[in-house]
């Protein structure tokens, strides 16, 4: 950020929507570029989540639980109940239920970065020479699509594991319309559309919610940044406090809900892979 003059509103927004990249990305898709900030925050938060839970798990008692253990147990039982209701194979649940827990906790933590004041970490980064930083990893399409792609791979894995490769192929070509050879291409294209739609909507839903939420936080921050000693700017500054408070409180719901939705869809898609049509 240029320190000499205050950025205009659009400069501020554009700056805040820029990732810290490993190289300048010029095209829409470039597989040689990394978003360092997304990877950093998603990995750190993921490790934080699972290590805290693992530490707790290591000294989990079957006696009277402490408050923290009870809280984690509530989440785990919620996930276990959902998994039991949706994925009917106990063998698959051994992996799918912990996966759903990971997804929920991880996405919740990444979403929760939205509640950190929008300029706090980027300004701290700027102070040590990191010019761009986006702290909400789930507001990066790469992160959400990466996860939904993981779910797609699991769907394919379990489809083949449960139905066999032949069974899966049979399903791809004969459902939803029927087994007549003329219908095979139609069925197959329908199935492909379904898989793509599932995966893209899965990732896009989370991304869209978090991106929009982050953008609104930035717009609210612009109101506070308008402070210039005049009455109008003073009102805007107060508006920042009011709007920021309301949006942050509302966002507590959003971040939990989106984490829950992503987890539920993960379970539903993997559950569907277990069912023969």
């Amino acid at each position: 950020m240029a320190a000499e003059h205050a950025p205009t509103a659009s400069e501020y927004i554009v700056h805040h929507l820029s990732f810290l990249t490993s190289a300048k990305q010029t095209s829409l898709v470039d597989w040689s570029v990394f978003h360092i900030d997304t990877l950093f925050y998603s990995t750190i938060l993921g490790l934080l989540g699972v290590f805290v839970m693992a530490r707790l798990a290591a000294r989990a008692t079957s006696g009277v639980p402490g408050r923290f253990q009870a809280a984690v147990e509530i989440i785990i039982e919620m996930v276990a109940d959902q998994a039991k209701g949706i994925v009917h194979s106990p063998e698959s649940r051994k992996f799918v239920a912990p996966l759903a827990l990971t997804v929920f906790v991880w996405i919740f933590l990444m979403n929760a970065m939205d509640l950190v004041p929008v300029d706090l970490l980027p300004m701290a980064g700027a102070a040590v020479g990191i010019d761009y930083m986006r702290v909400v990893a789930t507001a990066d399409l790469n992160a959400t699509l990466g996860m939904s792609l993981g779910v797609l791979l699991l769907c394919i894995y379990y489809s083949i594991k449960i139905k066999g490769f032949g069974g899966w192929m049979h399903e791809l070509f004969t459902t939803p319309f029927g087994a007549h050879p003329l219908l095979w291409p139609v069925n197959f294209s329908m199935q492909m559309i379904e898989y793509v739609a599932k995966t893209v909507s899965h990732g896009m839903r989370l991304f869209g919610n978090m991106y929009a939420g982050e953008l609104i936080f930035m717009l609210i921050a612009l109101m506070g940044a308008a402070w210039a000693g005049t009455l109008g700017s003073g009102l805007l500054w107060i508006g920042h406090i009011i709007a920021g408070t309301i949006w942050a409180i509302f966002h507590i719901l959003i971040i939990t809900l989106q984490a829950f939705i992503f987890m539920m869809l993960t379970l539903v898609y993997i559950g569907q892979a277990h069912e023969s049509h």
Partner: peptide
């Protein structure tokens, strides 16, 4: 922009899930 972050995230996703399955 879509880039290699996606695949890194995919790998981290599976590693974290495996870790949770194993230790949590």
């Amino acid at each position: 922009n879509l880039n290699a972050t996606l695949f890194a995230q995919l790998v981290v996703f599976f590693i974290l899930a495996w870790f949770t399955m194993k230790f949590v």
